[in-house]
Amino acid sequence: MLLYTLRRIAALAPIVIVVVFITFILGYFGPIDPVRAILGEEWEDEQRYAETQRALGLDRPFMIQFLDYVGSLFGGNWGQSLSAYAGVASDRAANQGRVGGAFFGTSTGVRQMIFSRLAISAQLGLWALLFLVIFGILLGVLAAVKQNTIIDYIIVTGSIIASSIPAYVIGPILLIVFVLKVPVFKSVGGWDGMFSRQAILPALILGSGPLLVVVRQTRAGIVEVLGKDFVRTARAKGMPERLVIARHMLRTAMIPVLTSLGLITSGLLLGSLFVEQIFNIPGIGKLAIQSLMSGDHPVIMGVVLLQALLIITVNLLTDLLYGALDPRVTYD
């Protein structure tokens, strides 16, 4: 197991390097020239241009700049947002939204910007995860127990609908319904902390995205064990059906669900581009969109890199967890 873990990590190292390299290339050819961003109108002055370029270290060869980027990544410096320089205001739009001031430092370091917003995205993601796990597993179990009945079809088709309609379609529709038609919510948009009403709609929408995966896997897992001997034994000794499902069926059926929940969780916690855009929530997704709009490529690089590294890590952990949870899986 230890050997397998080490070997997997060793195999990942080159992939991580290439991921960082691709991210760097994307930033290197980014749409905004940082020198122009600093100089504004004066960029046509060749001497000033060269001076500024040298000051930023952008006159060095490509590979040197790349190695420098990797080096500073290890040092915890993910680069500087272009909003640090005159002319570009990636954060200006953020401050126009209704946002709690405490979440925004004045820092323009990419890492600081990302991590100050991670808290908001993660809080929203936690609610979404809670909703997803509770409803996904309940509906999956119900569909499996009522297999091939009308209830089963309604649950599965409903989950397909909930999962395939994009957030930017269902979001505005829910807003119109629950704010204009049935005024449940008075104010929407922005972020008022984890326990405010504002968190409800976005969390529901965020959580319904992966609902289908959870419902389908739970259903398939339960269906598979429905007729198994150990289930019959549990029933034969007089155990209530509720406990048979909870203690015996779910425990076996949950292994594939748990492993896929790993990747889903990382996706939820890192924020959603669309949900955060619609509800104007100043999380990582919103940061990414603002940076895309203003061409602030150091920040996009940071977000892309963080997500990619997290996906790689979670995939590795999932594989390892699978072995730990399922005694039938062996590594050699």
Binding site: I15, I22, L26, P31, V303, Q307, I311
Partner: peptide, 22 residues
Amino acid sequence: MRLADITMAFPDILLAAFISVI
């Protein structure tokens, strides 16, 4: 296969958005 692994590691919509800006 490694190219596929690497592409899979990136968040797809965000990467596509980034690439399309460039």
